[in-house]
Amino acid sequence: MKNVIEIDHLTKTYGKARGITNISFNVEEGEIFGFIGPNGAGKSTTIRTLLSLIYPTSGSAKIFGKDCIEFAPEIKKEIGYLPSEVFYYDNMKVIELLKYSASFYKKDCTKRIKELAEIMDLDLTKKIDDLSLGNKKKVGIVQGLLHEPKLIILDEPTSGLDPLMQQRFFELLEAEHKKGATVLFSSHILTEVQRLCDRVAIIKEGEIVAVEKISTLQENNYKKFKIHTKANLDADYFNLAGVSNLVVNNDTVSFLFRGNLNSVMKKISDVEIANVWIDEPDLEEIFMHYYVKEA
């Protein structure tokens, strides 16, 4: 599979403030790639470096196989970008802004603008200044997709959108994805990443802590245990290798487990239990696990 984005040891520091450190990951052609981490972890910094709005301190990145700084104008022909905070020229009308945006791409986008505006329920005749945050976001979405880009980069795209519009937007993304577009989707909301993405990179304090398939993260690695015991247990009874997020509350024990299941099962069989639940953890819990583990 061809890589659309290749990030190679990318580092960006702003004086004293931490930016991103030594980030490396690839996004393959045709996938929806999630980029997840809390606010301030470095998601936007990474994306802005890819778009050459800011320049890396060291390391490099390639998009469509070309250096993202040197060939910036060329590769941007095929990139659609939705920033996390949308700001446009206040005195313009929506349609004027979209036409201005379209004028940078050498193709006729009039039809596509109409289609997208209809899907996103956007009034083209309003002034940008009069739009609410959610409606500005819709302008951003239409603006990012109107030239049918091969790579769509979204930075926290759903903030400000109501649930119905989020739904429409996800359907729109899935349609673009089916047409062959690659998507880099940055977010701090796990459920939307879980729903859309094939793979995910988790970023924490400027460093990548994991790059994995969503399915691997969810199914293969972790089990969520909750055990009701008949007698109170020693707090450290289940504290063995592979256990994390251990919570002991009188006769209830819960934890995440990664490793050989037999070792846990033996431990469980040695005590009198009243009930036991073994679940697939949702992404949120795995995510917290990454953060708690290294805190």
Binding site: P73, K76, Y81, F87, Y105
Partner: peptide
């Protein structure tokens, strides 16, 4: 100043032009 740089500077034009 108006934070429109994330619009204009991601278009397929160089900063020089």
């Amino acid at each position: 100043r108006d934070k429109t740089s994330e619009f204009l500077f991601v278009k397929p034009v160089s900063r020089n032009s």
